[in-house]
């Protein structure tokens, strides 16, 4: 079996997020338009100034075209909620596009960092350092007992959330996902789909995150997440994969081979079908059944095949049929003709 850094055979990416609000100001859902503008005005200098801890590029989402907002959403740099909201709001994105700071989402500030594989600690350090650097410049709402104050009681305290995007095709095939969901619930973990809250699972991706933000330090929460919770699920998926191979190797190879063949031959591809078949090919890569395509290339495709990305690449709006065609062309180019 090939070796994968940072458990990338199962973990697509990890993220850490910190929620913060400016002291003495109403939370976003109560704030007037003027107050939400003030939030932006107070955050822009520390976010984008020359002395900023992270060089960032500001996008005003109130005026940004729909296409740009969709692209940011597909890159997981902003939430659907922020993309679709109205009024003064925006996002600052780091130059490497692996960190973003959303302004006026549910909280005044939501900072995220993302990294490939299971590396939530790396993400955490990046946003913590940023938080520590800008805190004295802004002044966060903090309560002696309840910690950093958030609009929703589920985020108060540390305001931190760790998440991992897990690829669990074998657990899905062996119908063991329900067990994972139940175990996750017992461990106070939320399990969501590819695009987070309220989204369906797509391509057998499941986003797992800690639900508790209060009563433990950030380090304790991180330690539990990265050393206990996620490894448990990773090992469960790995043994399901091995079990499938032992029991049904030919059937698995057949299925993965057919999915790859369709991707290489299709002239029109809907996003759901592409996600489903790419998920299968990704499993093939990890099991050394598909040998010639690098895992990284498939990981990138999950982003690249989204409609906003295709439209950005084409630099024009695409009709549904045009999108399907562009998607098929791209997939063929990346995976090679069969």
């Amino acid at each position: 079996m090939p070796e994968f850094a940072h458990d990338e055979d199962v973990v697509l990416s990890s993220r850490a997020r910190i929620a913060r609000n400016i002291a003495g100001m109403p939370f976003v859902h109560v704030a007037s338009e003027d107050q939400r503008r003030e939030v932006i005005a107070r955050l822009l200098p520390p976010l984008t100034g020359t002395t900023s801890a992270e060089p960032t590029i500001w996008t005003d989402l109130e005026t940004a075209p729909k296409q740009r907002r969709r692209m940011l959403f597909e890159q997981h740099l902003i939430s659907r909620q922020l993309a679709d909201a109205k009024g003064p709001r925006g996002v600052a994105v780091a130059e490497d596009e692996a960190m973003s700071v959303m302004i006026n989402e549910e909280d005044h500030v939501r900072m995220h960092a993302i990294a490939p594989g299971l590396q939530p600690g790396l993400c955490f350090e990046r946003i913590r350092d940023f938080d520590v650097a800008i805190e004295p410049l802004v002044g966060w709402a903090f309560h002696e007992r309840w910690g950093y104050q958030s609009a929703c009681p589920t985020n108060t305290g540390t305001g931190i959330r760790f998440s991992a995007m897990l690829h669990l095709p074998a657990l899905r095939m062996t119908r063991e996902l329900e067990k994972v969901r139940q175990a996750a619930k017992d461990l106070h973990l939320a399990v969501r789909g590819y695009y987070g809250e309220g989204s369906e699972s797509s391509g057998n991706f499941y986003q797992v995150s800690n639900q508790i933000t209060l009563g433990c330090s950030e380090e304790e929460l991180l330690d539990r997440f990265v050393n206990t919770i996620v490894p448990g699920i990773i090992n469960y998926e790995r043994s399901a994969r091995q079990m499938l191979l032992r029991r049904d190797r030919i059937a698995i190879e057949d299925r993965i081979g057919r999915d790859l063949a369709v991707l290489r031959a299709a002239r029109l591809l809907k996003v759901d079908e592409a996600m489903r078949r790419l998920s299968s090919v990704r499993l093939g890569c990890c099991l050394d059944i598909v040998k010639v395509i690098p895992l990284q290339q498939i990981n990138n495709l999950f982003h690249e095949i989204q409609t906003g990305h295709l439209q950005t690449a084409a630099d024009s709006h695409l009709s549904p049929i045009q999108s399907q065609e562009a998607r098929a062309v791209l997939v063929r180019r990346r995976l090679g003709e069969g």
Partner: peptide, 20 residues
């Protein structure tokens, strides 16, 4: 507040760790 927070934080009632 205590009721709402503790309910959504599975009983945790105090912040632990970093602050301003």
């Amino acid at each position: 507040t205590a009721i709402m927070v503790e309910r959504s934080q599975s009983g945790a009632a105090h912040h632990v760790g970093r602050g301003p």
